[in-house]
Design a binder for these strands. Sequence first.
DNA 1: CCTATTTATGACCATTTGGTCATAAATGAA
DNA 2: TTCATTTATGACCAAATGGTCATAAATAGG
Lengths: 199, 199
Amino acid sequence: MNAGRPRKSEPEDILEKAMQVFWAQGYEATSMADIMAATGLHKGSLYQTFGDKKSLFMAALARYLDHMFLEQKAIIDQLADQPALALRTALNNMLNMKCEHNDTLHGGCMAVNSLVDSAPFDEDISQLIEHKKGRMINEFMKLIMQIHEQNPGQLNGSPEVIGGMIGVTMQGLSIEMKNNMDVKQANTMLNHQLNLLGL
Amino acid sequence: MNAGRPRKSEPEDILEKAMQVFWAQGYEATSMADIMAATGLHKGSLYQTFGDKKSLFMAALARYLDHMFLEQKAIIDQLADQPALALRTALNNMLNMKCEHNDTLHGGCMAVNSLVDSAPFDEDISQLIEHKKGRMINEFMKLIMQIHEQNPGQLNGSPEVIGGMIGVTMQGLSIEMKNNMDVKQANTMLNHQLNLLGL
DNA sequence: CCTATTTATGACCATTTGGTCATAAATGAA
DNA sequence: TTCATTTATGACCAAATGGTCATAAATAGG
Protein backbone atom coordinates (compact mmCIF):
# COMPACT_ATOMS: atom_id res chain seq x y z
CA MET A 1 0.00 0.00 0.00
CA ASN A 2 2.61 2.54 1.08
CA ALA A 3 5.33 3.54 -1.28
CA GLY A 4 8.54 5.25 -0.32
CA ARG A 5 11.68 4.38 1.56
CA PRO A 6 10.95 2.73 4.92
CA ARG A 7 11.70 4.56 8.16
CA LYS A 8 14.78 3.71 10.20
CA SER A 9 12.83 4.34 13.39
CA GLU A 10 9.29 5.20 14.32
CA PRO A 11 8.70 8.83 15.30
CA GLU A 12 7.62 7.66 18.76
CA ASP A 13 10.98 5.96 19.32
CA ILE A 14 12.86 8.98 18.06
CA LEU A 15 10.85 11.18 20.38
CA GLU A 16 11.55 8.95 23.35
CA LYS A 17 15.29 9.20 22.77
CA ALA A 18 15.16 12.93 22.19
CA MET A 19 13.18 13.29 25.40
CA GLN A 20 15.89 11.52 27.40
CA VAL A 21 18.50 13.99 26.15
CA PHE A 22 16.36 17.10 26.70
CA TRP A 23 15.41 15.76 30.12
CA ALA A 24 19.00 15.33 31.16
CA GLN A 25 20.45 18.48 29.63
CA GLY A 26 17.67 20.98 29.15
CA TYR A 27 16.62 22.80 26.02
CA GLU A 28 19.39 25.34 25.50
CA ALA A 29 22.19 23.01 26.53
CA THR A 30 21.09 20.34 24.06
CA SER A 31 22.24 20.73 20.48
CA MET A 32 20.78 19.05 17.45
CA ALA A 33 24.11 17.21 17.26
CA ASP A 34 23.26 15.64 20.64
CA ILE A 35 19.89 14.57 19.31
CA MET A 36 21.52 13.15 16.20
CA ALA A 37 23.89 11.10 18.32
CA ALA A 38 21.07 9.83 20.53
CA THR A 39 18.70 8.91 17.73
CA GLY A 40 21.18 7.80 15.09
CA LEU A 41 19.38 9.97 12.57
CA HIS A 42 20.83 12.84 10.60
CA LYS A 43 19.51 16.34 11.03
CA GLY A 44 17.78 16.42 7.68
CA SER A 45 15.47 13.63 8.75
CA LEU A 46 14.85 15.16 12.14
CA TYR A 47 13.89 18.51 10.68
CA GLN A 48 11.70 16.82 8.10
CA THR A 49 9.81 14.88 10.77
CA PHE A 50 9.59 17.40 13.60
CA GLY A 51 10.00 20.84 12.07
CA ASP A 52 12.50 22.72 14.16
CA LYS A 53 14.31 22.27 17.44
CA LYS A 54 11.65 23.96 19.53
CA SER A 55 8.87 21.82 18.07
CA LEU A 56 10.88 18.70 18.74
CA PHE A 57 11.47 19.83 22.31
CA MET A 58 7.83 20.60 22.88
CA ALA A 59 6.81 17.23 21.47
CA ALA A 60 9.29 15.56 23.81
CA LEU A 61 8.07 17.57 26.79
CA ALA A 62 4.45 16.79 25.95
CA ARG A 63 5.34 13.13 25.75
CA TYR A 64 6.99 13.33 29.16
CA LEU A 65 4.02 15.03 30.76
CA ASP A 66 1.48 12.76 29.08
CA HIS A 67 3.37 9.71 30.25
CA MET A 68 3.58 11.12 33.74
CA PHE A 69 -0.11 11.96 33.77
CA LEU A 70 -1.38 8.66 32.43
CA GLU A 71 0.62 6.63 34.89
CA GLN A 72 -0.68 8.63 37.84
CA LYS A 73 -4.20 8.62 36.46
CA ALA A 74 -4.11 4.84 36.29
CA ILE A 75 -3.05 4.63 39.92
CA ILE A 76 -5.76 7.05 40.96
CA ASP A 77 -8.46 5.17 39.07
CA GLN A 78 -7.34 1.88 40.54
CA LEU A 79 -7.55 3.26 44.09
CA ALA A 80 -10.66 5.34 43.48
CA ASP A 81 -12.29 4.09 46.67
CA GLN A 82 -9.37 5.21 48.83
CA PRO A 83 -8.61 8.80 47.85
CA ALA A 84 -5.98 9.35 50.54
CA LEU A 85 -4.06 6.24 49.52
CA ALA A 86 -4.50 7.11 45.86
CA LEU A 87 -2.98 10.55 46.41
CA ARG A 88 -0.06 9.22 48.41
CA THR A 89 0.67 6.45 45.93
CA ALA A 90 0.47 8.69 42.90
CA LEU A 91 2.72 11.37 44.41
CA ASN A 92 5.31 8.86 45.52
CA ASN A 93 5.21 7.27 42.11
CA MET A 94 5.87 10.64 40.51
CA LEU A 95 9.10 10.91 42.47
CA ASN A 96 10.12 7.42 41.45
CA MET A 97 9.50 8.16 37.77
CA LYS A 98 11.97 11.00 37.93
CA CYS A 99 14.79 8.54 38.38
CA GLU A 100 13.57 5.47 36.58
CA HIS A 101 15.34 6.07 33.32
CA ASN A 102 18.83 6.07 34.78
CA ASP A 103 20.07 5.58 38.30
CA THR A 104 23.20 7.66 37.92
CA LEU A 105 21.59 10.44 35.94
CA HIS A 106 19.80 12.95 38.07
CA GLY A 107 17.20 14.36 35.77
CA GLY A 108 14.81 15.75 38.29
CA CYS A 109 11.45 16.66 36.79
CA MET A 110 11.70 17.66 33.15
CA ALA A 111 8.84 20.11 33.60
CA VAL A 112 10.42 21.82 36.60
CA ASN A 113 13.71 22.02 34.72
CA SER A 114 11.91 23.63 31.81
CA LEU A 115 10.17 25.99 34.18
CA VAL A 116 13.61 27.37 34.95
CA ASP A 117 15.48 27.29 31.68
CA SER A 118 12.86 27.52 28.93
CA ALA A 119 9.41 28.62 30.05
CA PRO A 120 10.50 32.09 31.23
CA PHE A 121 11.69 32.92 27.72
CA ASP A 122 9.07 31.20 25.60
CA GLU A 123 5.34 31.65 25.90
CA ASP A 124 4.54 28.46 23.95
CA ILE A 125 6.57 26.28 26.26
CA SER A 126 5.19 28.10 29.27
CA GLN A 127 1.62 27.48 28.16
CA LEU A 128 2.28 23.84 27.35
CA ILE A 129 3.55 23.20 30.86
CA GLU A 130 0.78 25.27 32.39
CA HIS A 131 -1.85 23.26 30.58
CA LYS A 132 -0.46 19.78 31.24
CA LYS A 133 0.35 20.66 34.82
CA GLY A 134 -3.16 21.96 35.40
CA ARG A 135 -4.59 18.68 34.17
CA MET A 136 -2.52 16.80 36.76
CA ILE A 137 -3.35 19.24 39.54
CA ASN A 138 -7.05 18.83 38.78
CA GLU A 139 -6.78 15.14 39.50
CA PHE A 140 -5.06 15.79 42.78
CA MET A 141 -7.58 18.46 43.75
CA LYS A 142 -10.44 16.04 43.13
CA LEU A 143 -8.86 13.60 45.56
CA ILE A 144 -8.24 16.31 48.12
CA MET A 145 -11.86 17.45 47.86
CA GLN A 146 -13.04 13.88 48.35
CA ILE A 147 -10.92 13.49 51.46
CA HIS A 148 -12.16 16.81 52.72
CA GLU A 149 -15.81 15.88 52.22
CA GLN A 150 -15.38 12.45 53.74
CA ASN A 151 -13.93 13.94 56.88
CA PRO A 152 -14.09 17.72 57.20
CA GLY A 153 -11.52 18.96 59.69
CA GLN A 154 -9.00 16.28 58.84
CA LEU A 155 -6.94 18.52 56.58
CA ASN A 156 -4.59 21.11 58.05
CA GLY A 157 -5.69 23.85 55.70
CA SER A 158 -8.19 24.51 52.95
CA PRO A 159 -8.11 22.15 49.96
CA GLU A 160 -6.65 24.98 47.87
CA VAL A 161 -3.82 25.56 50.32
CA ILE A 162 -3.20 21.82 50.62
CA GLY A 163 -3.01 21.50 46.86
CA GLY A 164 -0.68 24.44 46.58
CA MET A 165 1.66 23.13 49.21
CA ILE A 166 1.82 19.73 47.60
CA GLY A 167 2.87 21.46 44.40
CA VAL A 168 5.55 23.45 46.19
CA THR A 169 6.84 20.32 47.88
CA MET A 170 6.99 18.31 44.67
CA GLN A 171 8.88 21.05 42.88
CA GLY A 172 11.27 21.50 45.77
CA LEU A 173 11.94 17.77 45.88
CA SER A 174 12.57 17.78 42.15
CA ILE A 175 15.36 20.30 42.63
CA GLU A 176 16.84 18.29 45.48
CA MET A 177 16.68 15.06 43.50
CA LYS A 178 18.38 16.67 40.55
CA ASN A 179 21.35 17.42 42.76
CA ASN A 180 21.89 15.35 45.86
CA MET A 181 18.86 13.61 47.23
CA ASP A 182 18.12 9.99 46.44
CA VAL A 183 14.61 8.76 45.73
CA LYS A 184 14.21 7.03 49.04
CA GLN A 185 14.94 10.16 51.02
CA ALA A 186 12.61 12.14 48.78
CA ASN A 187 9.81 9.67 49.41
CA THR A 188 10.38 9.95 53.14
CA MET A 189 10.17 13.73 53.07
CA LEU A 190 7.11 13.66 50.87
CA ASN A 191 5.28 11.36 53.25
CA HIS A 192 6.30 13.46 56.21
CA GLN A 193 4.84 16.48 54.44
CA LEU A 194 1.63 14.63 53.63
CA ASN A 195 1.34 13.70 57.31
CA LEU A 196 1.73 17.34 58.28
CA LEU A 197 -1.00 18.31 55.85
CA GLY A 198 -3.36 15.80 57.47
CA LEU A 199 -3.50 13.49 54.48
CA MET B 1 50.34 57.14 43.35
CA ASN B 2 48.66 54.94 40.74
CA ALA B 3 49.48 55.34 37.12
CA GLY B 4 47.41 54.05 34.22
CA ARG B 5 44.13 54.84 32.58
CA PRO B 6 41.28 55.16 35.08
CA ARG B 7 38.51 52.60 35.16
CA LYS B 8 35.14 53.31 33.61
CA SER B 9 33.44 51.34 36.39
CA GLU B 10 34.49 49.60 39.53
CA PRO B 11 34.65 45.79 39.31
CA GLU B 12 31.98 45.60 42.01
CA ASP B 13 29.56 47.63 39.91
CA ILE B 14 30.31 45.57 36.83
CA LEU B 15 29.74 42.40 38.81
CA GLU B 16 26.42 43.69 40.13
CA LYS B 17 25.16 44.34 36.62
CA ALA B 18 26.45 41.03 35.31
CA MET B 19 24.71 39.31 38.22
CA GLN B 20 21.36 40.84 37.27
CA VAL B 21 21.66 39.43 33.75
CA PHE B 22 22.80 35.97 34.83
CA TRP B 23 20.07 35.94 37.46
CA ALA B 24 17.36 36.74 34.94
CA GLN B 25 18.59 34.55 32.08
CA GLY B 26 20.82 31.84 33.48
CA TYR B 27 24.35 30.91 32.53
CA GLU B 28 23.93 29.25 29.14
CA ALA B 29 21.27 31.65 27.91
CA THR B 30 23.41 34.69 28.68
CA SER B 31 25.99 35.67 26.08
CA MET B 32 28.97 37.89 26.61
CA ALA B 33 27.19 40.32 24.30
CA ASP B 34 24.40 40.55 26.88
CA ILE B 35 26.96 41.31 29.57
CA MET B 36 28.57 43.93 27.35
CA ALA B 37 25.21 45.61 26.83
CA ALA B 38 24.44 45.57 30.55
CA THR B 39 27.81 46.84 31.73
CA GLY B 40 28.67 49.20 28.87
CA LEU B 41 32.11 47.62 28.69
CA HIS B 42 33.64 45.82 25.76
CA LYS B 43 34.57 42.20 25.95
CA GLY B 44 38.29 42.84 26.05
CA SER B 45 37.93 44.67 29.35
CA LEU B 46 35.61 42.05 30.77
CA TYR B 47 37.97 39.23 29.95
CA GLN B 48 40.91 41.18 31.30
CA THR B 49 39.15 41.78 34.61
CA PHE B 50 37.30 38.51 35.16
CA GLY B 51 39.09 35.88 33.10
CA ASP B 52 36.45 33.95 31.23
CA LYS B 53 32.69 33.68 31.16
CA LYS B 54 32.51 30.95 33.75
CA SER B 55 34.69 32.86 36.21
CA LEU B 56 32.55 35.94 35.75
CA PHE B 57 29.42 33.88 36.35
CA MET B 58 30.84 32.28 39.47
CA ALA B 59 31.88 35.68 40.82
CA ALA B 60 28.37 36.97 40.19
CA LEU B 61 26.78 33.92 41.80
CA ALA B 62 29.09 34.22 44.81
CA ARG B 63 28.14 37.86 45.12
CA TYR B 64 24.46 36.93 45.04
CA LEU B 65 24.85 34.27 47.71
CA ASP B 66 27.05 36.42 49.90
CA HIS B 67 24.57 39.26 49.73
CA MET B 68 21.75 36.87 50.53
CA PHE B 69 23.67 35.39 53.43
CA LEU B 70 24.78 38.65 55.00
CA GLU B 71 21.32 40.14 54.94
CA GLN B 72 19.80 37.12 56.63
CA LYS B 73 22.68 36.88 59.09
CA ALA B 74 22.05 40.49 60.12
CA ILE B 75 18.39 39.73 60.76
CA ILE B 76 19.26 36.64 62.75
CA ASP B 77 21.81 38.46 64.89
CA GLN B 78 19.38 41.26 65.55
CA LEU B 79 16.71 38.84 66.74
CA ALA B 80 19.11 36.52 68.51
CA ASP B 81 16.92 36.35 71.61
CA GLN B 82 13.87 35.19 69.63
CA PRO B 83 15.06 32.31 67.46
CA ALA B 84 11.60 31.46 66.14
CA LEU B 85 10.95 35.02 65.05
CA ALA B 86 14.47 35.28 63.66
CA LEU B 87 13.94 32.19 61.52
CA ARG B 88 10.56 33.37 60.25
CA THR B 89 11.80 36.85 59.47
CA ALA B 90 14.93 35.67 57.69
CA LEU B 91 13.08 33.14 55.55
CA ASN B 92 10.39 35.62 54.57
CA ASN B 93 13.07 38.15 53.75
CA MET B 94 14.76 35.63 51.48
CA LEU B 95 11.59 35.37 49.45
CA ASN B 96 11.30 39.14 49.23
CA MET B 97 14.90 39.50 48.02
CA LYS B 98 14.12 37.27 45.09
CA CYS B 99 11.90 39.95 43.64
CA GLU B 100 13.44 43.14 44.91
CA HIS B 101 15.51 43.94 41.86
CA ASN B 102 12.59 44.16 39.48
CA ASP B 103 8.89 43.73 40.01
CA THR B 104 8.11 42.54 36.52
CA LEU B 105 11.11 40.28 36.19
CA HIS B 106 10.61 36.92 37.81
CA GLY B 107 14.10 35.86 38.69
CA GLY B 108 13.38 33.28 41.32
CA CYS B 109 16.43 32.27 43.30
CA MET B 110 19.61 32.53 41.28
CA ALA B 111 21.08 29.56 43.13
CA VAL B 112 18.07 27.35 42.49
CA ASN B 113 18.14 28.37 38.85
CA SER B 114 21.81 27.44 38.68
CA LEU B 115 21.05 24.16 40.41
CA VAL B 116 19.00 23.30 37.34
CA ASP B 117 20.90 24.77 34.43
CA SER B 118 24.56 24.91 35.47
CA ALA B 119 25.46 22.88 38.53
CA PRO B 120 24.58 19.49 37.00
CA PHE B 121 27.17 20.06 34.28
CA ASP B 122 29.91 21.82 36.19
CA GLU B 123 31.55 20.59 39.35
CA ASP B 124 32.98 23.99 40.25
CA ILE B 125 29.61 25.70 40.14
CA SER B 126 28.04 22.80 42.00
CA GLN B 127 30.60 23.04 44.79
CA LEU B 128 30.27 26.81 45.04
CA ILE B 129 26.52 26.54 45.59
CA GLU B 130 26.94 23.60 47.93
CA HIS B 131 29.37 25.55 50.06
CA LYS B 132 27.48 28.83 50.25
CA LYS B 133 24.19 27.05 50.73
CA GLY B 134 25.64 24.99 53.57
CA ARG B 135 26.73 28.15 55.32
CA MET B 136 23.17 29.48 55.21
CA ILE B 137 21.65 26.19 56.29
CA ASN B 138 24.00 26.10 59.28
CA GLU B 139 22.55 29.37 60.51
CA PHE B 140 19.02 28.07 60.17
CA MET B 141 19.92 24.81 61.88
CA LYS B 142 21.36 26.70 64.84
CA LEU B 143 18.05 28.51 65.24
CA ILE B 144 16.06 25.31 64.92
CA MET B 145 18.23 23.65 67.53
CA GLN B 146 17.70 26.58 69.89
CA ILE B 147 13.95 26.37 69.45
CA HIS B 148 14.10 22.65 69.99
CA GLU B 149 16.10 22.97 73.21
CA GLN B 150 13.92 25.78 74.53
CA ASN B 151 10.81 23.69 74.11
CA PRO B 152 11.35 20.05 73.16
CA GLY B 153 8.23 18.60 71.62
CA GLN B 154 7.24 21.83 69.93
CA LEU B 155 8.61 20.82 66.56
CA ASN B 156 6.73 18.41 64.34
CA GLY B 157 9.80 16.40 63.48
CA SER B 158 13.49 16.17 64.29
CA PRO B 159 15.56 19.32 63.71
CA GLU B 160 17.19 17.61 60.72
CA VAL B 161 13.85 16.85 59.12
CA ILE B 162 12.57 20.35 59.87
CA GLY B 163 15.66 21.87 58.28
CA GLY B 164 15.35 19.65 55.25
CA MET B 165 11.71 20.49 54.74
CA ILE B 166 12.38 24.19 55.00
CA GLY B 167 14.94 23.78 52.25
CA VAL B 168 12.49 21.87 50.06
CA THR B 169 9.82 24.51 50.63
CA MET B 170 12.13 27.41 49.81
CA GLN B 171 13.29 25.79 46.61
CA GLY B 172 9.75 24.92 45.60
CA LEU B 173 8.62 28.48 46.24
CA SER B 174 11.51 29.78 44.17
CA ILE B 175 10.25 27.80 41.19
CA GLU B 176 6.72 29.06 41.71
CA MET B 177 7.86 32.66 42.05
CA LYS B 178 9.90 32.40 38.88
CA ASN B 179 6.73 31.57 37.00
CA ASN B 180 3.40 32.60 38.44
CA MET B 181 3.33 33.23 42.14
CA ASP B 182 3.68 36.70 43.59
CA VAL B 183 5.73 37.41 46.69
CA LYS B 184 2.76 37.90 48.94
CA GLN B 185 1.31 34.51 48.15
CA ALA B 186 4.72 32.92 48.61
CA ASN B 187 5.05 34.50 52.03
CA THR B 188 1.64 33.17 52.99
CA MET B 189 2.52 29.65 51.95
CA LEU B 190 5.87 29.81 53.69
CA ASN B 191 4.26 30.88 56.95
CA HIS B 192 1.64 28.17 56.65
CA GLN B 193 4.43 25.64 56.22
CA LEU B 194 6.30 26.99 59.23
CA ASN B 195 3.12 26.66 61.27
CA LEU B 196 2.80 23.05 60.18
CA LEU B 197 6.37 22.39 61.23
CA GLY B 198 5.62 23.77 64.70
CA LEU B 199 7.80 26.83 64.31
C1' DC C 1 57.70 66.24 27.40
C1' DC C 2 58.58 61.48 27.81
C1' DT C 3 57.85 56.99 29.66
C1' DA C 4 55.76 53.28 32.11
C1' DT C 5 51.50 51.52 33.38
C1' DT C 6 46.82 50.54 33.35
C1' DT C 7 42.52 50.24 31.09
C1' DA C 8 39.39 50.44 26.86
C1' DT C 9 38.48 49.17 22.29
C1' DG C 10 36.95 46.52 18.47
C1' DA C 11 38.80 43.89 14.71
C1' DC C 12 39.67 39.24 14.28
C1' DC C 13 39.41 34.07 14.89
C1' DA C 14 37.99 29.20 15.24
C1' DT C 15 34.13 26.71 16.60
C1' DT C 16 29.47 25.66 17.14
C1' DT C 17 24.84 26.63 16.38
C1' DG C 18 20.17 25.89 14.12
C1' DG C 19 18.55 25.25 9.75
C1' DT C 20 18.30 24.21 4.38
C1' DC C 21 18.60 21.62 0.30
C1' DA C 22 20.06 18.89 -3.54
C1' DT C 23 20.95 14.22 -4.01
C1' DA C 24 20.72 9.35 -3.14
C1' DA C 25 18.53 5.20 -1.51
C1' DA C 26 14.70 2.28 -0.83
C1' DT C 27 10.22 0.95 -1.36
C1' DG C 28 5.23 -0.17 -3.91
C1' DA C 29 2.54 0.35 -7.95
C1' DA C 30 1.87 0.38 -12.88
C1' DT D 1 11.53 -1.81 -15.67
C1' DT D 2 10.01 2.44 -14.86
C1' DC D 3 8.04 5.87 -12.06
C1' DA D 4 6.24 8.24 -8.13
C1' DT D 5 6.86 8.61 -3.42
C1' DT D 6 8.95 8.63 0.91
C1' DT D 7 12.84 8.76 3.76
C1' DA D 8 18.00 9.29 4.68
C1' DT D 9 22.13 11.71 3.99
C1' DG D 10 25.62 15.10 4.62
C1' DA D 11 27.50 19.10 2.34
C1' DC D 12 26.52 23.69 2.91
C1' DC D 13 25.21 28.29 5.00
C1' DA D 14 24.60 32.48 7.77
C1' DA D 15 24.63 33.83 12.34
C1' DA D 16 26.19 33.75 16.90
C1' DT D 17 29.38 32.14 20.35
C1' DG D 18 33.43 32.45 23.59
C1' DG D 19 37.86 34.10 23.42
C1' DT D 20 42.39 36.68 21.82
C1' DC D 21 45.22 40.43 20.74
C1' DA D 22 47.33 44.47 18.78
C1' DT D 23 46.39 49.14 19.28
C1' DA D 24 44.80 53.35 21.33
C1' DA D 25 43.64 56.31 25.17
C1' DA D 26 44.31 58.07 29.64
C1' DT D 27 46.65 58.66 33.72
C1' DA D 28 51.03 59.51 37.30
C1' DG D 29 55.73 60.14 37.89
C1' DG D 30 60.32 61.52 36.39
